[in-house]
Nucleic acid binder design. Sequence first.
DNA 1: CAAATAGTGTCTCTAAGACAATATCAC
DNA 2: GTGATATTGTCTTAGAGACACTATTTG
Lengths: 274, 274
Amino acid sequence: MSDEKDFLSAYRQDDYPRPSVTADIVVFMVRAEDSGNYRRDSRTKLSLLLIRRGGHPFKDCWALPGGFLNPDETIEQCALREVQEETAVKPASLLSVGLFSEPNRDPRGWIISNAFVSIISEEKVRQQSGDDASDAEWFDVDFTQEDDGGYMLTLTYRDVTLRAVLTEESSSFGRTSFLIKDSGGLAFDHARIIATALTVLRSGAKEFEYIFDFLPETFTLTQLQNVQETIMNISVLPANFRRKIAPLVEQTDLFTQGAGHRPAKLYRRKKETK
Amino acid sequence: MSDEKDFLSAYRQDDYPRPSVTADIVVFMVRAEDSGNYRRDSRTKLSLLLIRRGGHPFKDCWALPGGFLNPDETIEQCALREVQEETAVKPASLLSVGLFSEPNRDPRGWIISNAFVSIISEEKVRQQSGDDASDAEWFDVDFTQEDDGGYMLTLTYRDVTLRAVLTEESSSFGRTSFLIKDSGGLAFDHARIIATALTVLRSGAKEFEYIFDFLPETFTLTQLQNVQETIMNISVLPANFRRKIAPLVEQTDLFTQGAGHRPAKLYRRKKETK
DNA sequence: CAAATAGTGTCTCTAAGACAATATCAC
DNA sequence: GTGATATTGTCTTAGAGACACTATTTG
């Protein structure tokens, strides 16, 4: 059909207005925090990566890592590229949260953003730390529902505390969407993106999706349980957790050592059997 | 900060290449098909809306309804607008499937599309039918996994049959993504979008999400069960279905009439109790 | 031994699936 | 009554949650 060729060569994209498109990524990590005590296990905290903006707009505010989509890549490749530029680590998983397209979400103009959740293990981050003197920092995450039904998102890094207030806008199948009442100093609509990303992460962690991605190749069941409890802000009995997770993991011959108490068997994730 | 104002007024979006952005919508409906027999209930089929393309590219192929995002609307508003333009019906629900951004998915150039699932009740469609002589038609859907692990998507409207072949690319938390092996005559990457949309719909229907949206305000439990069975391509025992759905519905005083058998009580969806 | 975590056994209760039985209409 | 669908009852089994108990290391 040269008919079609004619059409395509005559086609001009400029006839329609076009937005800039970005990917913003909520990079999660579960960190172990030394709890002082001489042989007690360390507590774990959920944290996410924020970057201090050096330029306008929202200069000096904290924002999610992200960047513009290039014509030769998919939005997933773009997100992956941006994470790696920022952390030098390839994330274990990347899942879409949704497209944020409020017309006025960015003061620079018409810029829409597809948000992603990305998961990195602390192990990999440690291997890389030190080689960038950038303004990227890991903030501890606390996200809880208030008595009045609103939500409070608190992000903490050393003496910096960002506290955003949100309300639930709609909820559908593991994804809740939020409205910002107070951005707490976060740039753009990033408080909203983070809140939505957290609901996605939590609803996945419930059925053990993603929780393996926070840990190294081999891990103890207690570590795995800690990850789930940390993400979901719950606590379950070890016996029950072990029973539920059993079909998804397999033993190795290795044990932990020198922890001041009984060694734990190391497990690895079992390949899906279908 | 006039500093920031200066920056913003100097900012030029044209410095970065920008894609056109569209919303494509997979509009689902569950249709009752008269099965001839004098007092046997009609069978139900899942169907979706396709539009015959009048212009290039993919002239005369069938495609999903959709259109370009305007600067003054969100992508959800855009999707809603496009559905209404095509069907004159306001869909009961609209949920995002994801952003499809393969660089060469559209021969016209760099055009990325956020896909949505939208659900319409047959009742509302019937109220509207006739007033558009457009090229929009409802195709019956059959989507099954083959023995070789591949997937077959068959869309049927009268004597038109579109048969696409796909393979599973990745799967994560209720969303499976596909690769097209044979588009079956569907335009663009729409076979892929439809397949992904079906996995989203099915994973939601499992826990009774969305199934109410296919029916009128009041309905019988058998109708509701038919919707779920039709979508998921399964069958469950009525007693068990009723027990599971009971907390989500409430009775009305009404009954069906003149069906040639025992009347069924009409129910309505119960408001969420939290 | 004490402190701490690792790991197992089992009781109870609830929910899911299977199946049987009864109810009520149009004709 | 017959044929069809509507609706309820209950048996069995699988899984979730709670709890008590045993095991193994370091200091």
